[in-house]
């Protein structure tokens, strides 16, 4: 359902569907919004699909954009990779207006992207997708030993943690000393 456009070039908004004769109330034409990620590729997404994202839903409600305004001002998510945003948009479209099942088989298959996906979904506040993603993360270590878990989840050893902590303290000390010196210089 989503159409992808290069740059910010416009795409013709979808024609409103004709209401069936038998319907009691006329169908409200669906409104569309536009989002882009780090790669600037604009994705056209329906308001219904975007309802999954608490962040975007809140932005739409506050801005009260018209169709034209929405087209001219796509929501920029510079911190999200283009392919990750594409996955999110696809998922939102697939689950538009549907109750989310307890187990989702339509999750993105590229597990190497899982970490970025979790961060993006967390940022966009898509609760259901976040739930599935976290389950996927948990399943990565299903039945694994502590050594395997350490490898899969890139968990530093205690020694590495201690070294990193020392390093951080050292750096913080240096920064504090630098700030003090700068403040002293300013005072002079």
């Amino acid at each position: 359902m989503s159409s992808t456009e290069q740059g910010t070039s416009s795409a013709a908004p979808a024609e409103p569907t004709t209401a069936p004769e038998s319907a009691a109330a006329p169908e409200v034409p669906e409104s569309f919004y536009y989002v882009h990620g780090k790669d600037k590729v604009v994705h056209k997404v329906s308001a219904g699909a975007l309802q999954h994202s608490a962040l975007i839903h809140g932005m739409i409600s506050n801005l009260g954009y018209t169709e034209e305004q929405a087209k001219a001002n796509p929501f920029p998510f510079e911190n999200i990779d283009g392919d990750i945003l594409q996955m999110v948009v696809d998922w939102c479209n697939q689950h538009k207006g549907k109750p989310t099942p307890p187990e989702d088989t339509n999750l993105p298959k590229q597990k190497e992207k899982l970490f970025d996906l979790v961060l993006a979904v967390n940022y966009l506040e898509i609760k259901e997708l976040l739930t599935y993603c976290c389950k996927q993360v948990a399943m990565m270590v299903k039945g694994k030993s502590p050594e395997e878990i350490r490898e899969i989840w890139m968990i530093p050893t205690d020694a590495e943690d201690e070294a990193a902590e020392k390093e951080a303290k050292k750096r913080a000390g240096k920064e504090a000393a630098g700030e003090t010196a700068a403040a002293a210089g300013d005072a002079k």
Partner: peptide, 17 residues
Amino acid sequence: LMPIRLLSLPEKDLQYT
């Protein structure tokens, strides 16, 4: 599986995982 840096996940996501 591509390893992920689990401990860098936001606290809430980590907790949920």
